[in-house]
Structure formats: C-alpha cells, structure tokens
C-alpha cells in the first residue's frame, strides 16, 4: 500500500526523531544504558575508546611489572604488585563495559595480539630505574586520573560505572608514585639525580597522553556533543600542567622545557612545543618498546593457554558428571 519512497522518508524521519530524543536525554544528563536506542556512531566511538582504554590497562602492566622483582623493599614490592594487579582488573572492567555494546572480548583480545589495536603510547617507553616507577605513578597515573574523572561522568552508563571504580583505585596508584618521588627528591644527590632523569624522560610522553592538540583531534566535537567527553585534550593537558608544575618545583625538580613559563594574565603554565612527530612515530609502531610489549603480551597469552585448557576441561567434566 505504501510506496518505497514514503517508507524511506518515514524511516529517516523516525531516525531523526530518535536522534533528537537521544540528544535531549544527554542534555538532561541521563545515562544511556544497554538496550536504549543510540546512534551507530555513538556505539562505534565508544567501542573504539573503551577497547583502546582496556588494551592500555593490560599493556600498562608490563613497564612497571618489570620492577616487581627489583623493588627496594618488601613493602614497595607489595604496593607495586597490588598496583599491577589493579591494572589487570581495570582491563577486565573495561572489556566488559565494551561488551555491553555488542563487541566480544575475544575479538578485542585478538585485535590486540594481532597488533591491530591501539593502546596508550606511553607504555611503549622503557622503565630504566626504580625512579621510573615513582614517576609513572605520579605523572602518568595523574594524567590518567584527569581523563578518567571526566569519563566517570560520561553519558554511557556501563563506561561511567567502570570509570568510577577505576578512579578510586587510580588515586592509590598516583599517591604511591608521588610518595616514591617525594622520598627520592629528598634523598641523596644520587637519588635526586635519578628521579630528575626519570622526569626528563617521562615528561613528553606524559603530555602526549592527553592526545593530539584540539585542532588535530577530529573525534572531539562529536564526543563532546554526545557527552562522552566533557573536556578537550588541550583543556585536560592544561589542568595537568597547572597542578604538576608547581608541585615538581616545590620538590626542587626541574622540567625539561626551556620555554616553560607562568602566564600571569591567564594564570596558566605555558609550555614549548610537544614532540608530535615522535608521538606519531610511536603510534606507527616505531617507539622504543612497541615490539617488546607485544612480544611479552603474546608470550603471556601463550603461557596461559594450558591454564585455560585445564579450566575448560574441568568445567566440561563437571557438566558431564
């Protein structure tokens, strides 16, 4: 009875009304839950972000995990073990949040192991000294907390809830790192030199964690419109600088940026150029540890195979019995 054309128009109109209703819900601050209507692009962006975030937590275990056996005391060793175990847990929270959008954990794991998935660039740098463990906790985890505190308010319910859990635990990560940096900064000349060297090496990679500058970040406008992000990359980076620069100075440490200066007018710390050419090189897989990280991840997966097989066999036996 109805011509094809009319049907198509109805469909487009219905789609349009759906979109308006969806955006109105977001404007009211409502969380979107699995089962609710959402634009395909909202789903796609969330799967992209959450799976990358999950991979970052999983790969993020590696740089610090390397220091568990070499921690300077039993207490520091227990703290570092707990922190690395948290990262594994965070990866799980996030894979499960992504699964509520219809993607399977297996697909995501395969993409990671096949080298097709992205994860945070910062984990492709080496941890050369114990001070690196402190600086990663202090700077890298603080940068992560700023991003994650924003995402804890995001419009997708399962992602927001995972972030609330993660932020509470990341606060421990940051403070244990800051604690190490404070101790080293007040230590012997050798310890001070070690922590300064770690800051020199981690400064740029940490600034890059917030992502490309706003003019070069094509996803940001739609992410803001749909309440996934509420701040831009540059806005978050500025919050980081305004907190961390005075703290490092108070500790008697310097920041490896000759252009760093305080702008009285705006009340912000301003920095020189970020090494974006290096950033894109590492994204392309040419960072100092990309290959090592992937090799370690694949090795861990293979080493765990017999455990997975044993568990599956046990479950099967229980069902048969």
């Amino acid at each position: 009875m109805y011509g094809t054309t009319t049907g198509e128009i109805d469909e487009t109109q219905e789609e349009q009304e759906r979109l308006l209703a969806f955006e109105a819900r977001i404007a009211r601050g409502e969380k979107i839950e699995p089962g609710d209507w959402m634009p395909a692009e909202y789903r796609r962006q969330l799967i992209r972000m959450i799976s990358q975030h999950a991979h970052s937590e999983i790969v993020g275990q590696l740089p610090e995990g390397a220091w568990i056996t070499r921690a300077p005391s039993l207490r520091r060793k227990m703290i570092l073990l707990a922190k690395v175990q948290d990262e594994a847990g965070h990866g799980q929270y996030l894979y499960h949040a992504a699964e509520t959008l219809g993607v399977r954990r297996e697909e995501m794991l395969e993409a990671l192991l096949a080298g097709k998935a992205k994860y945070s660039n910062v984990f492709n740098y080496p941890t050369l000294t114990w001070a690196d463990v402190g600086v990663i906790g202090y700077l890298v985890d603080f940068a992560a907390i700023l991003n994650q505190t924003m995402l804890a308010r995001c419009s997708y319910g399962p992602y927001a809830r995972a972030m609330v859990r993660i932020c509470a635990e990341e606060n421990f990560h940051k403070k244990q790192g800051q604690d190490i940096v404070i101790r080293l900064a007040q230590g012997t000349p050798c310890q001070r030199a070690m922590v300064q060297d770690a800051i020199n090496r981690w400064w740029q990679p940490t600034l890059m964690m917030f992502g490309p500058p706003d003019h070069d970040s094509p996803n940001t406008p739609i992410l803001k419109r749909w309440g996934i992000k509420t701040k831009t990359n540059d806005e978050l980076r500025q919050v980081f600088l305004d907190t961390i620069v005075p703290e490092l100075h108070a500790l008697g440490l310097t920041i490896p940026d000759p252009d760093l200066r305080y702008d009285e007018g705006s009340g912000h710390w301003l920095i020189g150029p970020i090494h974006w050419d290096e950033f894109w090189r590492v994204v392309r897989g040419e960072g100092p540890c990309n290959k090592e990280r992937m090799a370690a991840r694949i090795q861990a997966h293979e080493d765990g195979r017999w455990v997975r097989q044993a568990l599956a066999a046990y479950a099967q036996k229980q069902t048969a019995a």
Binding site: H96, R161, L311
Partner: peptide, 11 residues
C-alpha cells in the same frame, strides 16, 4: 558491579 568470563559458575 560488572561481569566476568568463566567456564563455570565456580570459577
């Protein structure tokens, strides 16, 4: 609180 994967309820 979220979900886990496992071969059975015990695990």
């Amino acid at each position: 609180v979220g979900s886990v994967h496992a071969p059975d309820a015990e695990m």
